[in-house]
Design a protein around this nucleic acid. Sequence first.
DNA 1: GATGAATGAGAATTCATTCAT
DNA 2: AATGAATGAATTCTCATTCAT
Lengths: 209, 209, 209, 209
Amino acid sequence: MHTTPRKQPTQARSKATVDAILEATARVLVADGYAKTSTNRVAKVAGVSVGSLYQYFPSKEALIYAVAERHAQTMVGLLAETMTDLADAPIEQAVRTYIDAMIQAHLIDPELHHRLMQLVFQVGLSQMTEIDDAATELIEGYLASRPETLATPDLKTASWVLMTTVEALIHMAVLQRPELLSDGRLTDEICAVVLRYLGVDCRSARRGK
Amino acid sequence: MHTTPRKQPTQARSKATVDAILEATARVLVADGYAKTSTNRVAKVAGVSVGSLYQYFPSKEALIYAVAERHAQTMVGLLAETMTDLADAPIEQAVRTYIDAMIQAHLIDPELHHRLMQLVFQVGLSQMTEIDDAATELIEGYLASRPETLATPDLKTASWVLMTTVEALIHMAVLQRPELLSDGRLTDEICAVVLRYLGVDCRSARRGK
Amino acid sequence: MHTTPRKQPTQARSKATVDAILEATARVLVADGYAKTSTNRVAKVAGVSVGSLYQYFPSKEALIYAVAERHAQTMVGLLAETMTDLADAPIEQAVRTYIDAMIQAHLIDPELHHRLMQLVFQVGLSQMTEIDDAATELIEGYLASRPETLATPDLKTASWVLMTTVEALIHMAVLQRPELLSDGRLTDEICAVVLRYLGVDCRSARRGK
Amino acid sequence: MHTTPRKQPTQARSKATVDAILEATARVLVADGYAKTSTNRVAKVAGVSVGSLYQYFPSKEALIYAVAERHAQTMVGLLAETMTDLADAPIEQAVRTYIDAMIQAHLIDPELHHRLMQLVFQVGLSQMTEIDDAATELIEGYLASRPETLATPDLKTASWVLMTTVEALIHMAVLQRPELLSDGRLTDEICAVVLRYLGVDCRSARRGK
DNA sequence: GATGAATGAGAATTCATTCAT
DNA sequence: AATGAATGAATTCTCATTCAT
């Protein structure tokens, strides 16, 4: 089963077609779920014929892959943009910036993100796990440069725990508790989870607030 | 679309048939995923005819619902069994018991659990979110009885944060980092995340370890 | 690609279904050719649903295979029936019996036979070449028992030449010169080709006719 | 459905394009078979656009027709070239020349020849049967000029029998027994079949060999 | 109650052909 | 003339569901 795009659109017209197809795929995937996402329907929503769809994507899977690729790159791009130059920032600020960036990244297209995450194991969307891997490495790099912040000696496990925790809280909040996100309460709580885990912002710190 | 079982099996033989069907559904679901789980195949694996399957379950969805129901009840049952009489236990012990119980519950059938979790939004398996709701209430009840443990005044949010965090760490570990589970390292780390978030086990506490 | 039947029909009803499907396949194949033989059309002609067709034959190819199998067995059966006890017959009679049997076999279903022969290399219908192989062996066995009849020392090549010649003349006559078949002229000519090649029925023999 | 070329290429460039298309068609036909010979693929292999292809050939069938036409003409051309001035040659030499010429004609492009022969009835390629008709006429003309050679009074039938026999033996040998062709054994055998059928080269002739 | 044959709508995919650029 | 993007009917095959036996 091919999962790589069939050909690169060269003309402006075909570029627009490919964009329309990817956008339609995302919309249909969100609305109907993977099982009910039919290529004919995607084509119809995109306003092109099935034939055109298959001219650029050799299979339904390739379509999903391309959407995941595009979404993952948008998210990682936003993260990378925000996370520069935190090396010297105080840890409270670094953590808050990371969490804010993560939330923004999740808000790019929350429903699409969720659908794609569901498919990670079902279809094998490595693109999506790479977001997490990138985040884990980011955290690991930061913690490695500040050994004193780490309560546990196991750097890798701690990084994974932090990434997983932040990711899960944001992901679930986006889906189940959007009100917590909009008023900023959640950001505070996630910061608290992270900083306290790192030994910062203990009762003493909090009291001084 | 009906999603409730068609009739209650009264005779012993019927009970065995239903059990075989549910077990077969779980196995096929794990092996092939929801999309490729066909009722004909389930019937064959269960050793009954499709006709018999439809005698007890009016649709494919009803089948999945019943499996989710059974699995959720097993998990909640195990949790309920373990969590009795923690009201007076010291917080460290309560947290550890909770986390241990959660891990055990996740290890009942990790792959089935994961498949079902994937389907929560796709098919609308409220049974699975009820596990989380039950856990959240459990936490909320415990924290409500010990207001001094809470660093945040928002009891509901804190409970949700804790449940989500513990659930995510265990779930992802079961799938991605099984080695962290088997040697007990993860239990320690999750305890640390929870207790520090609750203001217990700060640096000072840890140092004394 | 599976080419073997999916399941054996056990009940009388399904046996009739399978028969209807095979017969319809043969008719559509003859009428429309392989490329235009669609499974939906076969099902319609057979008076069953596509689903039923696919219950017994996993692919279009499997369908053709089964038809070829059935046809080849009918032909070989007829040959075997006719060709017994020629060991002691005079060569003229043996040759004529063989040719007559071959003609009868070709007349079972000439158009189907032709379509299937066309597909031998295209689809790989070994069943059909096996008819030729069986015929070649028959000839080889007969010639081996009468070394004096053979003008060439190379038994295998001579057998292949004879089988190919007889087969081609009958096959083409059935399709292009049916009138030669009906009045028996062709049988005489094919006998002449064979017997003269074998050194029998030279001018002298003929003159005495 | 049009089957005649759309326009005659007058310019040199057009001629080259048409040639490239025909050659590509032949190659794809041999490699993939008729059903999988797509016009898009032919165009790609020919190095032109589909649009250009359809400028010269109004349909897929027209493409195949043109290829058959070209191939048949090449074969008939080679035959005609070789067969001149056999009127006075001894029969043994005439037969051998004919068979040699036929073999050479079959070796021009054996796989293409076979693919086209398969399509004769499927698509109706009269061009290919015309090769046989030409050969039959050639034989008939020769035999008519030498009535004494004929064992049968029916000239037409005898010619058809000879043409069919020689054609089949060569055709099948090219496909199934190429080793018989390369070492010349087959030529001898085919000569034997023909000459003995014609009453020449009886035992007596052979003995003197 | 049980069986499993039958159904047919619907999904993925291909490819001959057209036509705007 | 040439290009190649676009079309969409047609094809193969699946599977949830029904119902005669």
